[in-house]
Design a protein around this nucleic acid. Structure first.
Lengths: 196, 196, 196, 196
DNA sequence: TATGAATGAGGTTTCATTCAT
DNA sequence: AATGAATGAAACCTCATTCAT
């Protein structure tokens, strides 16, 4: 029985290694240009093994998607903030964590945005992630005295999508710490002013 | 001489039809999953003809990119605005035109965002389009009394990327006119407030 | 462990079958006109398998070239000769063996000469084979009292290229045993006289 | 009428240019790898024109073959020799002219040897050229007192094929004037000795 | 569980050839 | 005579997938 457990554990590790490798390859080349051979090689296994764990390349994609949940990260980011800080420093901190998280999950984000345009299921997933990412910040702002209202929700969505765009098009390439600080500083100020 | 011109004209039409078909197919399936066979069929020609006009599938992609210039559209949108209107109605009008333009060029935009994640050349192109899209609006705002400054430029970039994201993730699917009006109204208000 | 070896052995057989089939097809049609489909069919495998074993059609050509070594055959031919025979019967024997060997490796020889004219790498290979083919005979002649010297080396090269030409243009088609005997007899006599 | 003649003349020029271009391209790449596009470009005409003058690419090959006659050159070479010279200087002169001629017709020779291995018609042509090339030299030698006989004919064929081989494999690449002189000197001496 | 040989459909590209002009 | 757009078959090569071991 112990041996079985050991085997199961090793199998699970292999499966996870495949999922992680797939994510990396997908984000590098896009789903269509990624080959199962690439993925297998990246995971250090042979070609056929993928089909022992996944029914198809597509299934492997979904396994990747299922494994990674961005929402949780954003929620955690919001909850970990110190309630005593000023609104401004609080937002600064939140946006920084958001960008850190985007960097950390770069492969996933890049893959999501790359595939979302042609894979409706991926796009829906992306939308729902963004929608759900709004609420932790909304509650936080409410607690700091910002009024409720749909327009506040929309302001949050706007600023969050803006930050994702900033990440995708600028931050992720440059890795310019100063530029990022300035960006966040200005964006936070404008965001707070935009709330009226 | 007339005959030559006629033939050349027909050839040019065929070439353009190929470029347009390619754009449509690329935006539908992404570059990698689009087959030259699909493109040829969509253009109503045989497989081989693509290679009479373009050296490769990649070259065809660049022909598509070169043919379409988004910047001009944005600049035109800015210049056509009525200088007598209030700042608010002016921005409303501008954002509407921007969304109209995005709809009009939906295939191109979708392709750009899909490919930008894995094709650095496409991404650079996208970034430069966005960068250049900032200035027409900047000048317009300056003329209406908004102060100059880097933070204003950044505010413009932010709001523009936000609108592109809105288009990609929500507007382009729903086609909900009311939702769009509300979105623009709120976004304009917040944008103006964010300028301080 | 035994199973693995069996599979590997079968794989090796397949690979060798591919190389042999390639040689046959190449020599029949030349490299450029040979199709990978032809080769696969000749080997009794499907098209794609070639690319499991070889990176390209060109690589398959080099595998063919590498597998076959003509030099060894010539050297062996020289060494197997009986040192007690007269110079004349010794040379007769050597030329006969050389022609036998050329017949045996007809596919390879034909391919080499066909491709050598347009593929510099193949030509270099061919030249080096001829160069190296000179020495076994040179040593043999030295042992039988023929003097050393560059002109002897050149005489050997000349007579060897002549025999190859005879094979390529006449012998290989006619398969005329008597003609061949007469050819060798006369050529041996003239060769020995030419040494002075 | 004059115009027609002019047109016909220009047409003939075009046709000849096509044949010459074809020869050059064939000898460079071999028949199969040469494309009609290549040939047309080399001749400075458009793709389709080839099919105005020749029924197919194959026909163009035969036009090339028909246009060039090597025999004449060899016969001329033999006849132009000075009958008063010694046998040795006469042969030296003849072999030099032969190599000059091979250089002059390099494209043709290379193409002939490249294609002869897989195109039986080309090979027959090559064989008959070599056979006929023997007689001018035979007569010359007879006139200088060399005895008649089949073995002399064979000696001539052998030495001629040897020289062709020398050209194809060594001389044509190196272009080493000294090496060539030495080669001819030794070969002539050995050839004369081989006659007994 | 893991291997990697084998399959076969399909992709990009090439190219001889045709034909309207 | 000359052009070059257009065709379509076929070439090389890729790759997801299967399967015997």
């Amino acid at each position: 029985m112990k041996t079985t457990t050991l085997r199961q554990q090793k199998a699970l590790e292999t499966k996870n290694r495949l999922i992680d490798s797939a994510l990396r390859v997908f984000s590098r080349k896009g789903f269509d240009s990624s080959t199962t051979k690439d993925i297998a090689k990246e995971a250090g296994v042979t070609d056929g093994l993928i089909y022992h764990y996944f029914a198809s390349k597509e299934e492997l994609l979904w396994a990747v998607v299922d494994k990674h949940s961005l929402n949780k990260n954003l929620q955690t980011a919001a909850l970990e903030l110190n309630g005593d800080d000023s609104l401004e420093s609080l937002m600064t901190c939140y946006f920084n964590r958001m960008l850190d998280m985007l960097h950390e999950k770069e492969s996933l984000i890049v893959m999501f945005f790359g595939e979302a345009q042609r894979n409706p299921q991926i796009r829906e997933r992306l939308v729902s992630i963004i929608e759900e990412g709004i609420h932790p910040l909304y509650f936080l702002l409410n607690n700091k005295g910002v009024r409720k209202g749909d327009d506040v929700l929309l302001a949050i969505r706007n600023v969050q999508t803006t930050i994702v765009m900033y990440f995708l098009l600028f931050d992720r390439m440059d890795n310019d710490k100063d530029g990022r600080d300035r960006y966040i500083e200005v964006t936070v100020r404008q965001f707070l002013r935009s709330l009226g």
